[in-house]
Design a protein around this nucleic acid. Structure first.
Lengths: 343, 343
DNA sequence: TTGTAGGCGTTATCAC
DNA sequence: GTGATAACGCCTACAA
């Protein structure tokens, strides 16, 4: 377990100066050194297993090649882990490292985390939330290149990327309408978050386009868990005329819809069709029959955010203006919970 | 957005040398400087918002204060995210940063990741897997302080921490036996992993202690998903005499058990009791009635691993010998799926 | 008790 | 084309 080779070792071994090694390895512009020198240096570097020390390089270049990712509960919540993944994979392919800070939603922890990011000299920060939220950016962050993921500020702000909730709600409803349904219930959550309003808007938009009058009685709000879904759907399915399809705010609520339908003696999808939202692993595909739902673009948001962040770091001038949030589409995942309405 | 203050700025402002600043801030042993000097330095540091540059410090001390965490799919899988969380929280409270590498199970990505960790000069590495596995440690890692989490080597090896599968299987079965069940089925998965053998062993151990003969007919193996659980439990529940309780390998299989019971017209827990494993969010608590299950100690494994890793880094001599894996208990989470057997 | 100076491994600015 | 050499910000042996 000996010391890692340094640039000096490579220089000595290749019979050149450290300057030459640095140039050969970094393809420095405007310094044309002979091909065979460059090749020789590269070979010895390879042979010695040399890789530049990022701390030293960073000290010199004032660039750590590290990105900070600060989030509330993201590491705990299932599908949001894919956001980390998307960020991490893009960062790594481009030679950057990702440093993770999980605040658990605690402002003190957040302050400590930001301090830690500063100390590590991260070149930029990703600020992510566990679900689509409107946030205020901690002022301590605004000094650094910053991108929000699954979160955005009120109005324009730093670059941000969020799911297209409206399109999601629209496509979910559309899928039901295209199967011939005319009475489509909506089991909605009761929080005041962008997803609530967005998905409802998409639902209404799809109805309107199909020439179906919006009926507020067909929209029932409950908490966004399995039990809430059960409650909402019980109520919806006991109405006359009974809705032949229900769009659920998320897959957990859809899980409750399955229970409600079973209790009433309705089969899915023969008697009632269901569409969820989130494509939540082990639920959407674990339910029987498999749940048709919409996928949140977490991986894509993570990837987009890192790419955007690296643009910002390369050219901070772009950072100047506030911009509107970018939305990414939620693709429809078809399984077996949607069919034509009963005759 | 001006340059961050350096140690020199603090020294100048406080009217001392940089040496004094360094000593005052780092509480260097054996250099007793007057309390008021120390205080003055601390105050100016505070006022200026000074925090040492970790790259510079690391370059000098050959210590990056960064831990690498390399894993296969851990960022994607739901409950395993808690392992990251446990690691991250402990690391951060002790002033260390966590650098995340997700290989997706691809050996090439793993090699690139290890290379990246080396370049960032991480002081130690956590090697984690998405579920309890027996692994071979990549030789490129053995040069660094290393701890395995939710993974271990065949036989003794570097420090490793895994869940106590046997205790889990034992406690699950025990919970059923204590409610008076004598015919306890086991819906087991069919993979050759430590959890399979461990949980089965715990099951048998509990039966034996209770003086109940082990009946291989009561153990049915299927794939460890919802469908597999359904299949296994259909078969178990159609036997005569019918088992009055089923221990399922995991919560997804338990989800299938619920469906099987419903189809046959059996109520949980009145007619049949069910215990799962994993305490998987949104499933264990989303099912109706709530599923009694065992919690995997992911958070604790992450925390334990980081603590152990920091011991190793502080005193590499301890790294010398190979040791057996440490196990952490899986606590029982009681909900509503267990009752006394029908009369 | 306090300060000066050297060096950690790089990159970049100069001479040659 | 190539190579000394001066930073980058910090810690620490050594000198004062």
């Amino acid at each position: 377990m000996t010391r890692r080779p340094s640039i000096r070792d490579v220089a000595r071994e290749a019979g050149v100066s450290i300057t030459t090694v640095s140039r050969a390895l970094n393809d420095v512009e405007g310094s044309r050194l002979p091909d065979d020198t460059r090749r020789r240096v590269r070979e010895t570097a390879e042979r010695l297993g040399y890789a530049p020390n990022k701390m030293a390089r960073g000290l010199r270049t004032q660039r750590s090649h590290m990105l900070g990712m600060i989030s509330d509960h993201i590491a705990t919540t299932p599908h949001a882990g894919r956001l980390i993944l998307g960020a991490q994979e893009v960062a790594m392919t481009r030679g950057w490292a990702l440093m993770l800070i999980n605040t658990g939603g605690d402002p003190a922890a957040e302050a400590r985390g930001i301090q830690a990011l500063h100390q590590q000299q991260v070149d930029g920060v990703l600020y992510a939330t566990m679900y689509h939220r409107i946030v205020e950016v901690p002022s301590a962050l605004r000094a650094l290149p910053l991108v929000l993921a699954d979160a955005r500020t009120e109005g324009d702000g730093p670059p941000a990327v969020v799911p297209d909730e409206v399109q999601g709600g629209y496509d979910a409803t559309r899928e039901l309408l295209e199967h011939g349904h005319r009475h489509v219930g909506l089991a909605l959550n009761s929080d005041d978050v962008p997803a609530t309003h967005g998905r409802l808007r998409g639902y209404r938009q799809a109805l309107e386009e199909a020439g179906i009058a919006y009926d507020p009685e067909l929209v029932v709000q409950e908490e966004s868990e399995s039990t809430g879904g059960y409650l909402a759907c019980r109520r919806l399915l006991e109405r006359t005329p009974r809705p032949t399809a229900i769009f659920c705010y998320n897959d957990r609520m859809a899980m409750g819809a399955y229970r409600a339908a079973a209790e009433i003696g309705l089969r899915i999808p023969a008697d009632v069709s269901v569409v969820g939202f989130d494509n939540q692993e082990y639920i959407a595909d674990g339910l029987y029959p498999g749940l048709t739902t919409l996928q949140l673009p977490h991986y894509e948001m993570g990837a987009w955010a890192v790419n955007r962040l690296m643009e910002l770091i390369d050219d901070p001038a772009r950072n100047a203006g506030d911009v509107p949030a970018r939305t990414l589409p939620c693709p429809l995942i078809r399984r077996s919970s949607v069919a034509a309405p009963p005759a």
